[in-house]
Amino acid sequence: MTFRQLQRRFLLYMVVVVIALWVLVPLVLIALAAFTPRLELYRWPRTVLPSAFSTATMAFFLRSYGTLTSLTNSALVALLTLGMTLALGAPAGYAVARYVFRGREAFRIGILMTRMFPTSLLAIPLIVTFIRWQLYDTLIGVAFIHTAMALPFAVLITSGIFSGVPKELEEAAMTLGCSRLGAFVRVALPLALPGLAAAAMFTFVISWNEVFAAAILTVRNRTLPAQVLTSLEVAPLDFRFAGGFFMIIPALIFMALARRYLFQMWGGAISER
């Protein structure tokens, strides 16, 4: 290796490290803040590393009024969303991946377009409708909205996953004695399972992270982000830091598990093909 090449490589990795730090450092800092003793957070000047590891901040957050309930609410809403989204979206994704049918492209574009729909327009007018339907301030109501938001992604990612399973495999199963459904269950489904699991995780994260609709459409049955958002004005620093940290944990875990599928979900270009 010449000196020039060495120099370039050094420069490359310098840039890479700087960018990686830019992404990672805030995460580390919020984690540190979440485990800093409560009083230390208000001290000036403050050191970056806490003087002692303390779970008091987290405990305060978790013991705060409404936190635990909103936590279970969030999990419930996310699971409901996940179930509904996959039940609706996976068949559509399968159809887009497997069949050439009139209107397929229109359907795909239409689905993509819904991604541009402002959350506020989804949530605010539905207050009235939800009150009428008795869905206002219910978890299932929030899950309905989250399903509407996650559905386009679910259709796109599952169609990507199912196109990864060659059609011939299902046809082969059919020539070997399976029905249409049997071929799907025995061949396509097992092969698509890891991808579908990733889709489920992304759906969970979308719901877990959503704050606007959840805050608008609930009063007593708040999800975690809605709970944190609506108590921001009165919440002390330690509550905010612990809340911020707590919200990102499941998201980070799922993202790490499903990272291979990130591109199928987000990568599609609108005017592709």
Binding site: I19, A20, V23, L24, P26, L27, L29, I30, A33, V205, W208, N209, E210, V211, P225, V228, L229, L237, R240, F241, G243, G244, F245, M247, I248, A251, L252, F254, M255, R259, L262, W266
Partner: peptide
């Protein structure tokens, strides 16, 4: 690594930078 923030909610991100 660069894709991590994709999974972080806007509220959490706001709180992180608030800190």
């Amino acid at each position: 690594m660069c894709a991590i923030p994709l999974g972080i909610s806007d509220l959490a991100a706001g709180l992180i930078w608030f800190s």
